[in-house]
Design a protein around this nucleic acid. Structure first.
Lengths: 360, 360
DNA sequence: TTGAAAGCGATACCAG
DNA sequence: CTGGTATCGCTTTCAA
């Protein structure tokens, strides 16, 4: 199918091809030394300590001069280690995954690892397929973000926000109980008693755990959540449309509510759009709390009160955890979790409940 | 710096275990057929046509049953083709690179290619280093986004928004002349005559070409740009801070202006923040035009009037161009450009010049 | 029709 | 101390 000219050695006599591949073999021919010795010196292997400094210098100089670049494919094949990790994310659109990726990238690249990136858009078929693709490329580890992994292979794996327990998998996840408590108690303190909830899409791995935490927090506050005021987003879109539609459904119930706790910032923005379209002001008539604190949240008007996930930090933690499992060589048998704390961010999309003001 | 996880292929002999140690050799042992035949069948090689269907089915069944996964490292080493492209981006923070990446990813993964992602934060040292890293991993091609490539190797390369001409490199770039004309003529039509310009940072590859286009458009409109009302951002930050500081410098000149054409949306937002801090309303006192139309632009208040770059499309184009150069096997000698058109997006950050209103 | 064997490029073991 | 050499897993040519 694809025809790509095989690189011969231009400096050598084999093929008169235009190529620039300098291999250990060509260095060997050039220097009159064995590939073994050259490899040892170039890698600073312990055995190189017993090679005369002159020879070492000669080798290093030649490598420099000929612009020798080790073929990492060959090295990986031999060492069984590719210095690459595969990263699975649902989207590449905005906020969430991007921030996690930034944290991952920083830590991984500092350790000399490269990142193989694939997206799956929450499509089941694509997911197994992409997972396979990543596996075949012999990555040393896998990081999955907001992804329900079908099967865990023996490759070291770290998940971010994937609450399903998998043996031997480290999972970085948010303290959702705390997050729900922060949001709901804030609304409660402002006098809100009729609080609507916008749940995440079924395919989002945070959806269930978040909802459970919300119920717990509500119970603890003595707050009852009206079943009809709990709606779930369905659409697999990375825009604010799902939140918009969800809020419309809330409004359609005709049941009074003074606040919305949305699944994330983007859906909160969609919800605000729906409220405004229905002539309800935010935060005067309805308070809205988002989630994540993506960049958008601060710039939106009204600026979003939200629960920040330390996404960048979560990415860095995942990377560290993976790197650790490389060096400690072990995949622990049990599922291991790292819990990170959310931070409440107060902005302008929440205010005292209008119900409260009426009482005054 | 890195390494030493001495990995000696420990799980080599666990043959019945379903893991990634299922090789052609183990299949061969299992089936009593040669690796050659198995490889042929599994790859649908032409030579497989002369193998009995029964045998083929037996092979396929066994591969399925044992969950055989070809080692792509070995294959790549042998074929000299890795089905992977390296992608260099400056940041992973917001909008710009993310959208380009989304377009890239979609097209590449549809063609079976994976993406190796590295960021360089515009740091010279890191740039050459990362470029090397990507090269060593034997990628089939490279896509560089807003990156000034130090050296072009023989690897097929496509750049996005890198106006420096490089032989044999396809460059996807925006029609900056048109973009500048759209923005300035809009402001001109609104009566603005004292227009300030916020130029991009020196390291951003669009900076120079954009500025040149602005000058051309201004000249054509008979608009003179006051030298002191042209400021350049310096800070290497992905936040709105550089724009904020630039606008502060504009204000500090004491020279009157009624509009700002910013280098991008994020700097426009920073500029608006500075203006508001100085009690100048946008768009009532000062109109602001952004650039790029990142997601933020629409959600910011006032919503940004801006010039949209079809970033996602540019990513897709780059991927297509790269894929094309793979199949056509050739690296064309001359530098080749693909120009895409900007789209003017009218929102709420621009209005009639107050100077004009005064005349009424 | 099928199999044996020669690599791809680098690393690591084992003699000398 | 150093140089052969087997090996990693796969593809592909050459023979049988």
């Amino acid at each position: 199918m694809l025809k790509k000219p095989r690189n011969g050695n231009s400096a050598q006599h084999k093929y008169p091809h235009v190529g620039r591949t300098v291999s250990l073999a060509s260095l060997s021919a050039h220097l009159g030394l064995s590939k073994a010795s050259i490899s040892r010196v170039l890698n600073g292997a312990p055995a190189a300590r017993s090679i005369p400094q002159v020879t070492q210098d000669r080798i290093l100089a030649a490598a420099q001069a000929l612009n020798y670049r080790p073929n990492l494919l060959a090295r990986s094949l031999r060492r069984g280690q590719s210095m690459t990790v595969g990263v699975l994310v649902p989207e590449l659109s905005e906020g969430y995954a991007t921030l996690v990726l930034a944290g991952l990238e920083e830590t991984l690249s500092a350790a000399g690892y490269a990142m193989m990136l694939v997206t799956h858009h929450h499509q089941e078929a694509k997911l197994t397929d992409l997972h396979r693709i990543v596996m075949e490329r012999a990555v040393d580890g896998i990081v999955a973000v907001d992804t329900s992994l079908p099967v865990i292979h023996s490759t070291p794996t770290v998940t971010i926000s994937c609450p399903d327990p998998h043996d031997g998998v480290t999972n970085i996840l948010l303290d959702h109980d705390r997050a729900a408590e922060l949001a709901l108690s804030h609304l409660y303190a402002l006098g809100h008693r009729q609080i609507a909830i916008i749940k995440g899409q079924p395919f989002s791995s945070d959806t269930d755990i978040r909802w459970r935490s919300i119920q717990i927090a509500a119970t603890r506050l003595g707050l009852s959540l009206h079943p009809k005021l709990v709606v779930q987003m369905k659409e697999n879109l990375a825009t604010d449309e799902p939140g918009f539609l969800a809020a419309q459904r809330l409004l359609a119930t005709g049941i009074a509510f003074t606040a919305i706790f949305a699944f994330n910032d983007v859906s909160a923005i969609g919800a605000i759009r729906a409220l405004q379209a229905a002539r309800r002001q935010v935060p005067e008539h309805v308070s809205v709390v988002g989630f994540d604190d993506v960049t958008l949240a601060a710039y939106h008007r009204p600026a979003l009160t939200t629960v920040r996930q330390p996404l960048r930090h979560m990415g860095a933690l995942a990377a560290q955890s993976l790197l650790h499992s490389f060096t400690s060589g072990g995949n622990h048998e049990a599922s291991h979790s790292v819990v990170v704390e959310p931070l409440f961010v107060l902005r302008n999309s929440t205010a005292q409940s209008p119900a409260l003001s009426l009482q005054c």
